[in-house]
Design a protein around this nucleic acid. Structure first.
Lengths: 134, 134
DNA sequence: GGGGAAGTTTACGTTAACGTAAAGTGGCCT
DNA sequence: AGGCCACTTTACGTTAACGTAAACTTCCCC
């Protein structure tokens, strides 16, 4: 069994735990481009991937506009040299940003380690007090 | 020469490239607690560290409330067991979140690699066309 | 003592990213 | 036919995180 060819809005909403309002909003922002059967939206696998990317972006604090950029990095626009140059620049920008975030995460993780250590120490001392409290 | 003992608001604003409005806003939210000399705010090294943490949090998409949590992880509240337990839980939560972000970053970096590769290929093909265009 | 420069308070404005509500459509079931 | 979903459009509401402007004080400089 190969992958599904199309998805309904509710289906995607359930899968990614967002509201249908949110999905329609992303379309409004030009991030998703479902086709229609009558009134009803029908989403392609590419739309699904785009949605995934948007949500991943959100977890990293990206704006929808930024995620839009990322999505467009994937659409082979049959470009000219100008655009390809700009593309490579954008990629480089994002790379720099991600690298900064990686560093930030490392520092925070160390901070958390230290905080946990202090908390555990404090707990230990509480227990000591207690045993001498009997 | 040891570190500075206090900072002015403009000084911090310049160092971290934020406006004084922003710094005052963070105080309003309870994230910074400068003392006063008359009307004027005077920031301690601890305030400066907190500010640093807030901005790092922002780069990772944390809300100010979340960064507030992180700051409080540092303030030894002379806690009871209840609070220490809650503290350890929060630390664990944050750890999980950071771990997810780490994964997200890795995926995005791979995506960028792929996108760059495609862009470079497209450039190559443009050049080929050109040389056969003469 | 007039004027910057840097600080202050108060308050209204703005943007992003949806939430929420109202009112309608289309299909399917019994 | 009635009812219940799941879907639609339209539109106003909301929250976070500041921006921006106005109207002060304080201090320093010449």
């Amino acid at each position: 069994m190969t992958l599904k060819q199309s998805y309904g809005i509710g289906e995607l909403a359930r899968e990614f735990d967002v509201t249908t309002r949110t999905i329609r909003f992303y379309e409004d922002q030009g991030l998703l481009t479902p086709r229609r059967r009558g009134q009803t939206r029908i989403y392609s696998p590419a739309d699904r991937v785009a949605l995934k990317l948007i949500l991943r972006g959100k977890r990293l604090g990206f704006s929808l506009a930024e995620s839009g950029d990322l999505i467009r990095l994937y659409q082979p626009t049959g470009d000219n040299r100008q655009q390809l140059g700009a593309l490579l620049e954008k990629i480089d920008e994002k790379r720099t940003q991600l690298e900064q975030q990686r560093v930030d995460i490392q520092i925070m993780q160390q901070d958390l380690d230290a905080a946990e250590e202090r908390a555990r120490q404090a707990l230990k001392e509480l227990e000591n007090k207690e045993s001498s409290d009997v």
